[in-house]
């Protein structure tokens, strides 16, 4: 555990040492900030071979996925530890990753590796309201917007980057494939406008009693 932490800290220090920052502001078509949007940057130049991404975990606590949106690099192994006393049946029928972890308790023996780019909607077969998203990108430089719709992408070097963004309500992005040049030691800023679907799209949630099924 300690050694892992050390590696992590070392990596962070290293990147900070060389880091350039791209600040992305995501707004909706009305100019409001869009929170919980995935933002990533991909160098225009060919990327150097990347190390195998670190495995991550998505917990299930109190019949909810912890973290509603998780952005991962392709090839990331994701484990779904169940912290509840009941079993869960995590699945996805999304094109980017179809998988099932049939009724299990505790930590499933094998993590799920996400090796295709795209959005993966996670659900639990026995708890309709449980919902989470994994957005798989083929870049290690990604972030999630905060409440102000801002995200900072730390990229290792100056140069040209293609910026991508995704949101579960995303219908269209403006500009479509924004590119940005990051000057050495400088910061770059980019504003993106997202066209979003109606926010009333049905998402299952437990109603008051926890038994009846309703919609938000």
């Amino acid at each position: 555990m300690n050694s892992k932490m050390l590696v992590l800290l070392a990596g962070l220090a290293l990147s900070m040492a060389h880091a350039e920052t791209i600040t992305v502001q995501v707004l909706d078509s009305e100019g409001g900030p869009v929170a919980d949007a995935a933002v990533y940057a991909k160098p225009v130049a060919a990327m150097a071979a990347q190390a195998k991404p670190q495995p991550i975990i998505i917990d299930q606590i109190d019949k909810e996925f912890i973290k509603h949106l998780t952005v991962v690099q392709t090839g990331t192994a994701v484990s779904f530890p169940n912290h509840d006393k009941i079993r869960h049946h995590v699945y996805s029928f999304s094109a980017a990753k179809v998988f099932e972890l049939p009724l299990y308790a505790g930590i499933p023996p094998e993590p799920v590796v996400f090796d295709k780019v795209g959005a993966v909607a996670l659900g639990c077969n026995i708890h309709d309201w449980m919902s989470a998203y994994i957005y798989v990108v083929d870049s290690p430089y990604f972030a999630v917007t905060d409440q102000a719709g801002r995200a900072q992408l730390n990229v290792p070097a100056s140069g040209g980057y293609v910026i991508g963004a995704w949101h579960r309500h995303l219908k269209g992005l403006q500009p479509r494939q924004p590119k940005i040049n990051v000057a050495a030691g400088g910061t770059a800023e980019l504003a993106l406008t997202m066209q979003l679907k109606r926010k009333s799209r049905p998402i299952r949630l437990p109603a008051g009693s926890g038994l009846a099924i309703g919609y938000r």
Binding site: D128, P202, R204
Partner: peptide, 9 residues
Amino acid sequence: VPVLAPEPI
């Protein structure tokens, strides 16, 4: 009705 997984599929 939508077929939810849990997104409408």
